[in-house]
Design a binder for these strands. Structure first.
Length: 877
RNA sequence: GCCGGGAUGGCGGAAUCGGUAGACGCAGCGGAUUCAAAAUCCGCCGCCGCAAGGUGUGAGGGUUCGAGUCCCUCUCCCGGCACCA
């Protein structure tokens, strides 16, 4: 094997040279190529694929370095490893770029992919590039269309009206992101809600399984499972009807989880789009105007939930299903047509929102729950009013005295007897609307025929190819303006027909790409038996941002189950795609700005700012490098274009090399926490690599020797060797179990600090050889280029990438004497040394005999002595 | 608004199962080297205090021999909220 850094080791660490040589070596030896091999355990390590936005940002560097560390570590542990990469290539930014720069989305996307691929290669990730694909190619999305037609036939995809943000000036549908303060981002027009037909995936049919299987995912963070559980939101309640008071036999259906409060209903609220509201508005211009007002504004839940609750009576009355009393129907802007029945019963006394609404409009508030020791008052809302775990029914006739569960059961039974309702399990989860009125996405494979209706495109006409030369204006859907795309013939009857011009939500592509990596070259099927090899028991590690905790991960779980039920996995049992999940935190950086006209702020990039500090290093101010004048120090925020606080990873790589970038990212914070960018921290990472290089160089220059393999050692060397093997144990645990790399790096740093203080003797040299070999292998997953070169110097002819990860030597860990802390009344007062195998009473005696303890006891007898083996002794006086 | 998370020196963070708070690194300070600087190496470094000592993990309360860690109340910050990806 070639010596990577040449016949004479460079004295100075030169990352550009070292990294180029290492990367060429890996390409030549196909080090990252993954081949199915049943003789080894497999390890599929997956990072969330990037949207090709132009260039890598720090979040990508962080995400993919974490993945690469785990990939390389597991390879050194003997696993057959797969680390793939691809491109989530459909999406809005390509259309925005097309509007701004007049570049076709496809061209822009492919150019970005080429650049970003080169950046990933420059970072030295052990990616199997033979498996790369972009989701915007027909070779990929044809299978998505194929699956769509299967699901459509199974009834798992259906059409219904959905509410979207409508820009009345641009005549276009806007994403929530494009609605700013209720206005369209380009036109500035007030956005309206509009109902249009859309295709939906029946994710609610899988709600029960998606919820239950969360318990089968011990490798997921508890917080993510909890978020998904709450999102699915299973609740048991009662669906029941209020008959209309006009004796028309019509009914208004509602769902409630608080049927126990049914006797406290004082009004009913319906959504603005509810048929009853429409009917009432027909001869009530004031109400019609109010309904129009409700339709203003966007559809985002966060906006609806925080806006002022408003309502108006309809003049329509319904009968209370149990008392027969007349109850008025109101239209409320906070009731959503898309949830449940689009109508809710209102119990102001026991629902905080209803309480506020009733106070505002002077509606009746009737207490029907009482809790012991509490007084009900209309002065203000109190927490216990809505707490179903407390209290019993009052003012509720035959239900008086019943607690929550008993009351719900009795009331549900009575409603059922009247044929007006029943208990029902309800999910918060809604079906997934996948239609988008956009160009740069996967065409929905449906043809609309006047005679045959909606006809899925037959297999032999797939893929429906997205035309690539299109003019994007930002107004309206481009495909709907292209007769050459939408004019077609019906596959059933052959008559002229119209092709669907909506495309799919881009979450669809990212819901199954991880399965396609197993078999990206298959032109005959969506997936094949290689999925059974790589995805058996789930993908071993998935790494990505916490912002995907709900949507992407839930959709991916859903798709895996859909594909299983379409029979795509054959005999293999694959219910869940990701066995282990690591959610990484954001990359944040300080912000700087100057106030500009109109209350706006000019954000200044951290790279252009000098921060001044006082004699203790505390920041006292900041100035712009260009003019030396002060700028305002803002908060520390997620790197973004809008705050101009992004740092380009490319400049980091150019200046320090890939290893320093990787080391800094892994050292600055544990993976799941946010990571604060710091120029000085990067310097520190670079300094450490220089130090590692120099220590190795000095050792190699004095002549390499066989690593220590046995024999008596004196105190210093014995202690150091114990530290070495403790470090090996800790680093293995940090990589393998804890997935916390900052502490692994810190442990190796400590080891090298101790290493630098070792004496120079023949014995010491063999221990140093052992330590350097181990340190270089331990750091290899994080800084593979430098370690590849160093290992070849320490063990000529050996390839660090093919080496086995060091194992701790149990014999080296044995300790004869240990130190115990001494506490008096819980306060640290000193320490004692005892034999490692000392008995409890011997420890107690030694502690009591110690000078410090005697001083604090001051002649008194201890009340209690607590001995924690291996830790401390606490004496209570 | 709802769901989930976070807060520890001047800064990033460590403390893995309730047991030495501040590992490791950055910044700072002192020294060595140097004509000088950079680089490098050595040492100091939570706060108050001359010291003894006291005090300290967002705020307040509690459990415990012992709390950064567990429980209750609160404040601020961050992620998600279904068309950003």
């Amino acid at each position: 094997m070639q010596r990577i850094s040449g016949p004479h080791m460079q004295e100075k660490y030169q990352p550009a040279e070292v990294e180029l040589a290492a990367q060429q070596h890996w390409v030549k030896t196909q080090a990252a190529r993954a081949v199915e091999d049943t003789t080894k355990p497999k390890y599929y390590c997956l990072s969330m694929f990037p949207y090709p936005s132009g260039k890598l940002h720090m979040g990508h560097v962080r995400n993919y370095t974490i993945g690469d560390v785990l990939t390389r570590f597991h390879k050194m542990q003997g696993y057959n490893v797969l680390q793939p990469m691809g491109w989530d290539a459909f999406g809005m930014p390509a259309e925005n770029a097309a509007i701004q720069n007049k570049v076709p989305p496809a061209k822009w996307t492919y150019a970005n992919i080429d650049y970003m691929r080169s950046q990933l290669q420059r970072l030295g990730f052990a990616i199997d590039w033979e498996r790369e694909f972009a989701t915007c190619t027909p070779e990929y999305y044809r299978w998505e269309q194929w699956l769509f037609t299967r699901l459509y036939e199974k009834g798992l995809i259906y059409k219904k009206l959905g509410t979207v943000n409508w820009d009345p000036v641009d005549h276009t549908v806007l994403a929530n992101e494009q609605v700013i303060d209720g206005r369209g981002w380009r036109s500035g027009a007030l956005v309206e809600k509009r109902e249009i037909p859309m295709y939906y995936m029946k994710i609610t049919a899988y709600a029960e399984e998606l919820l239950a299987d969360l318990d089968q995912l011990p490798g997921w963070p508890e917080q993510v499972r909890l978020m998904q559980k709450n999102w699915i939101g299973k609740s048991t309640g009662v669906r029941f009807a209020f008959p209309l008071a006009d004796n028309s036999n019509e009914k208004l259906w509602v769902f409630t989880t608080r049927a126990d409060t049914i006797m406290g209903v004082t009004f009913v609220a319906v959504a603005a789009e509810h048929p009853l509201a429409t009917r009432a508005a027909a001869n009530n211009p004031e109400l019609a105007a109010f309904i129009e007002e409700c339709k203003k504004g966007g559809v985002a839940e966060a906006d609806i939930a925080t806006m002022e609750k408003k309502g108006m009576p309809t003049g329509i009355f319904v009968q209370h299903p149990l008392t027969g009393e007349q109850v008025e129907v109101w239209v409320g802007n906070y009731v959503l047509m898309g949830y449940g029945e689009g109508a809710v019963m209102a119990v102001p006394a026991h629902d905080e929102r209803d309480f506020a609404f009733a106070k505002k409009y002077n509606l009746a508030i009737k207490q029907v729950i009482a809790a012991e020791g509490e007084t009900f008052s209309l002065d203000g809302w109190q927490e216990w009013y809505g707490d179903k775990s407390r209290g019993t029914c009052v003012n509720s006739g035959k239900y008086d005295g019943l607690a929550y569960e008993a009351a719900v059961d009795a009331i549900a039974a009575d409603l059922a007897a009247k044929g007006l309702g029943e208990k029902k399990v309800q999910f918060r989860l809604r079906d997934w609307g996948i239609s988008r009125q956009r160009y740069w996405g996967c065409p929905i494979p449906v043809i609309h025929c006047e005679s045959c209706g909606d006809v899925p495109v037959p297999d032999d006409q797939l893929p429906v190819v997205l035309p690539e030369n299109v003019e994007i204006t930002g107004a309206g859907s481009p495909l709907a303006k292209m007769p050459e795309f939408y004019e077609c013939t019906c596959p059933k009857c052959g008559k002229p027909a119209r092709r669907e011009t909506d495309t799919m939500d881009t979450f669809v592509e990212s819901s199954w790409y991880f399965l396609r990596y197993a078999c990206p070259d298959n032109t005959q099927a969506m997936v094949d038996e290689r999925v059974a090899y790589w995805c058996k028991g789930g993908i071993d590690q998935y790494i990505g941002g916490i912002e995907h905790a709900i949507l992407h991960l839930l959709y991916s779980r859903f798709f895996t189950k859909l594909m299983r039920d379409v029979g795509l996995f054959g005999e293999q049992k694959l219910d869940e795609p990701f066995a282990n999940l690591l959610t990484q935190g954001m990359v944040v950086a300080p912000t700087f700005y100057r106030d500009a006209e109109g209350g706006k702020k000019d954000w200044i990039n951290p790279a252009d700012v000098d921060v001044t500090t006082d004699e203790r290093g505390r920041p006292t101010g900041a100035t712009l490098k260009a003019d030396g004048q002060p700028v305002v120090i803002g908060g520390t925020e997620k790197m973004s274009k809008s705050k101009n606080n992004g740092v380009d990873p490319q400049s980091l790589m150019d200046e320090y090399g890939a290893d320093t970038a990787r080391l800094f990212m892994m050292f600055a914070a544990p993976p799941d926490q946010s990571l604060e960018w710091s120029d000085a921290g990067v310097e520190g990472a670079f300094r450490f690599l220089k130090r590692l290089w120099k220590l190795s160089h000095d050792h190699v220059a004095a002549g390499i020797v066989p690593a220590y393999s046995g024999g008596e050692l004196d105190g210093v060397l014995k202690d150091f060797r114990r530290q070495l093997h403790q470090t090996i144990g800790k680093v293995s645990d940090d990589y393998g179990r804890r997935k916390q790399f900052n502490t692994a790096i810190a442990a190796v740093m400590e080891l090298l600090n101790a290493f630098a203080k070792l004496p120079d003797s023949p014995e010491a040299r063999s221990v140093k050889q052992e330590a350097l070999e181990a340190a270089v292998l331990m750091l290899f997953p994080i800084v593979p280029h430098a370690c590849q070169a160093l290992y070849a110097e320490l063990k000529p002819g050996c390839d660090a990438g093919q080496a086995t990860f060091p194992k701790a030597d149990a014999a080296a860990l044995v300790q004869s004497e240990i130190e115990l802390m001494l506490q008096v009344n819980g306060k640290l007062r000193g320490s004692i040394k005892v034999p490692a195998d000392a008995a409890k009473d011997a420890i107690e005696a030694a502690a009591l005999a110690s000078e410090t303890v005697q001083k604090h006891l001051d002649g008194q007898a201890p009340k209690k002595v607590v001995v924690v083996p291996g830790r401390l002794v606490n004496i209570v006086v």
